[in-house]
Amino acid sequence: MTHTSPHAAHDSAHHRLPQHDSDDDGQAEILDLDAEVLAEHTASITAWLPLDQAPRHIVDLGCGTGTGTFALLARFPAAEVTAVDASARHLRRLAERAEALGVADRVRTVPADLDAGWPELGEPELVWASASMHHMADPDRALRAVHDLLAPGGLFAVVELADFPRFLPTDAPKERPGIEERCHAAMAHRDAEHVSHRGADWGPKLAAAGFTVEGKRTLTVNVDGSRSAAVGRYALSSLKRLRAGAAHALTAEDLGALDQLLDTESPHSILRRSDLAVRTERTVWAARRA
């Protein structure tokens, strides 16, 4: 099982496979906000996938609370999705939403820590893994497992973040400009030991596992806060988790300024800012099993 990172809930797509239940509620909130704010971008990825025909069976690896699952169900209305995650709480949340949306008969949830072993998942025509492959203890072995899982001619979609989302302008807050970047720098140094495959070029790895890479696409994400009220809540939840992970490396002045941003009663609260945006990049590789 890999280690839980304070950034893990950004892995949307955001979504790592091994989780600890004690941290699931906070992660679930960020995953749901990410899904809401970036729904357009996720839909554009599912529409881009080079499929000869609509899949009937899809596996979503590291599904989290269902960002990919529900986007895929919407894109392929005749398909069924097997949603796999190590977090029982996330899977319950996903199942409850499927029930509420009237698609419960098209969703099967499977609890599994894929570092420990792979359950029976059938023979899907499409496997989707969004921000989950880099958390695998042995990604090359996992890629080979996906290759063997897919139906002949099936497609594997790997979606990864180039970096974690940023929300504040670089000169904010006025008292401590650049505080968000300093938090991310502290976390990058800390996470490098545990998540060494983040930012990898998955093309060569996919080819080595026997896939033919048929397409690669990078999406630049820049969602202005004026477009969605959820951006402020997304920023608040994300920066709370960032503070928890980066506090050890921050000065007292940085911590004070950060706490003012996170205090929803403060006039400096991040929820009162009109200059927020969600800025990140996502890259998707589409790989075919021969």
Rank of each mutant, 00 (worst) to 15 (best):
M1L: 08
S5I: 05
D11T: 02
A13H: 08
A13K: 00
G26L: 08
Q27G: 12
L33R: 00
L38N: 04
A39I: 05
A47Q: 13
L49Q: 12
P50A: 09
I58G: 12
G68T: 15
F70S: 10
L72H: 09
L73Y: 13
A79L: 11
A88R: 14
E96H: 06
R97A: 13
D105R: 06
V107S: 13
P111K: 14
P111V: 15
D115A: 11
P119W: 07
E120G: 02
G122W: 06
V127W: 08
W128P: 05
S130T: 10
H134I: 13
M136L: 03
A137S: 14
P139D: 00
P139K: 03
A142N: 04
R144C: 09
A145Q: 12
A145C: 02
P152D: 14
G154E: 09
L155D: 09
V158P: 01
V159F: 07
A162T: 14
D163G: 13
D163L: 04
P173A: 13
G178K: 05
I179T: 14
I179N: 05
M187I: 15
A188R: 12
G199I: 06
A200H: 10
D201R: 07
K205H: 13
A209K: 07
G210E: 04
K216A: 15
T220C: 04
V223I: 10
G225H: 01
G225N: 02
A229V: 00
G232E: 02
A235F: 01
K240H: 11
R243I: 02
R243C: 05
H248L: 00
L250P: 03
T264M: 12
E265V: 00
P267E: 13
S269Y: 04
R273G: 09
R273M: 11
S274E: 13
A277E: 05
V284N: 02
A286E: 05
R289H: 09
